[in-house]
Design a protein around this nucleic acid. Sequence first.
DNA 1: ATAAACCCTGACATTAATGTGAGGGTCAAG
DNA 2: CTTGACCCTCACATTAATGTCAGGGTTTAT
Lengths: 123, 123
Amino acid sequence: MKIGELSARTGVSIRSLRYYEQQGLLTPARHGNGYREYSPLTEEQVRTIQLYLALGLSTEQIAGFLQCVLKNKEAFCQEVLPIYRQKLAEIDDQIHLLQNIKLNLEDRIRSILDERQIDDKEE
Amino acid sequence: MKIGELSARTGVSIRSLRYYEQQGLLTPARHGNGYREYSPLTEEQVRTIQLYLALGLSTEQIAGFLQCVLKNKEAFCQEVLPIYRQKLAEIDDQIHLLQNIKLNLEDRIRSILDERQIDDKEE
DNA sequence: ATAAACCCTGACATTAATGTGAGGGTCAAG
DNA sequence: CTTGACCCTCACATTAATGTCAGGGTTTAT
């Protein structure tokens, strides 16, 4: 299957498919004319990549264990767990940061509304 | 006060102070030799800018109400509330996204540990 | 008058995945 | 043999605040 078909089947842009290749995530064969030829298995592979990207992992991290998880259960791949844990820690940090900002914003919004209430009464 | 002193007093890098000026947040006077001259009030102004940046607002958004809030109470500045509310909505979205990813990661980590438990017993 | 410590502008780098366009081959159907 | 629909590579743009040079003036103290 050529790149256009793979793109249509997966919903991933041609640009992105080429980028994944450049990052070492896909290694399609080449026709004599230079066209990429993807095996049917690649479709599932691309969906797997998208899944990991959606978890916030970088292409570099994914490259580190993709070959393993495509052939085995995730639990078999030693690299996965530490990456998951690291990502989880990052996510937790981000959530806490955002929640602090959220509380701050809510306070400020409340203050503004309170002040306006007072000002309204004064006039 | 010159830029080095302002930077030292506020902890904000010289580079950033120049950037704030470029974004219209600061407008120091100039000496004949081209050196920027900041009024003592600027120190507080810079702290205010940092405060808003820490809330996740962009310099462009800050520029939209900074002059007002420096002269009045925040509640007086009409531009502030909608920006706060918009930012709050964005933050909420991000938090929800991150929480979904977090749950997903936790599931996956649990699955891996469970599977390994089983595999350990089998051998 | 020289050295150290300032200041200036301009410009490129950073991050990461993706969009977009130029310039140019290839192939299939008419 | 031409047209349209593919494909290729290369490369610049995107975001936003900040870091970091380079190349060059100024000031202050010695």
